[in-house]
Design a protein around this nucleic acid. Structure first.
Lengths: 135, 135
DNA sequence: GAACCAACGTTGGTCAGTCCAACATTAGAG
DNA sequence: CTCTAATGTTGGACTGACCAACGTTGGTTC
């Protein structure tokens, strides 16, 4: 099997596991990525969040909308730059993210189950090298 | 970075490279997969091709249509089972596949460029183990 | 032979991720 | 003031992946 296809197949497997885990909490990968970025980096503009998560601007709008509706984050105009909003995770969002983190950790474990610890580290190293070569 | 996300990112990289290569010949990954399966396994029903390539039945119809239009394959009713079609690669399709194979080989090389041969083999082994564990 | 079940191909559709275009507003540089 | 870039929003397209419904065909069981 072609390396590209194999990688794709592995990614599909990973996505399936992660998607199923997140679906238990009624969210998708984009939602998780956004909440995780807010928690890690603090309040930020949508554009900055897009740069950090890889989510496109228009999809960032939709994702922020989804999560704002559930009071997991808040959006407010940025007083320092009127082009921007500032997006902030709520306390409820933080709690929810804790739940998601547990689901995600279990999904990683499931995805990597066939590999012992040393192989896992090696896989991560190899993939990282593939990916960073591009960025 | 989460292993699932890293894998996904690597797959996106691979897909981008492969998609760009295939776009030079005006086809997509599904098209290539179908032609390659026909070449490897010979004439087959759409359902069998779907099982080999992972392409869903309705997408198989569309993909076969695309390639039949370009005379890269032919579809005919199967005289042995009237529920089925038999799909056959044409001589033109075979030549075209040769071109695609060269594009794909170059894309694999590009994708794996950051890794020396031993690491490539190891990556393939690790990914294969992840993927086959599921099937 | 009839009833039932499964397989097949086709049509039609949805979804998630990915990405782009166009627009109006705002900020900064010259 | 002009020009350029950044921002957020709306709207859209594309690909891959997947599902439902349908009519036809083939095989099994009674």
């Amino acid at each position: 099997m072609l390396p590209s296809r194999l990688t794709n197949h592995a990614a599909m497997t990973a996505n399936r596991i992660v998607d199923r885990a997140l679906a238990q909490a009624g969210v998708r990968r984009y939602h998780y990525a956004l909440l995780a970025a807010l928690e890690e980096y603090g309040p930020a503009s949508q554009a900055a969040l897009g740069r950090r998560t890889g989510i496109d601007r228009s999809d960032m709008v939709a994702t922020v909308n989804d999560l704002a509706e559930r009071h997991l984050l808040e959006r407010a105009p940025d007083p320092e730059d009127r082009r921007r909003n500032v997006v902030t995770i709520t306390a409820e969002g933080r709690t929810f993210l804790g739940d998601l983190d547990r689901l995600i950790a279990a999904a990683q474990e499931e995805f990597l189950a066939p590999l012992p610890a040393a192989d896992r580290r090696h896989l991560i190293d190899l993939l990282t090298r593939l990916v960073e070569h591009r960025d």
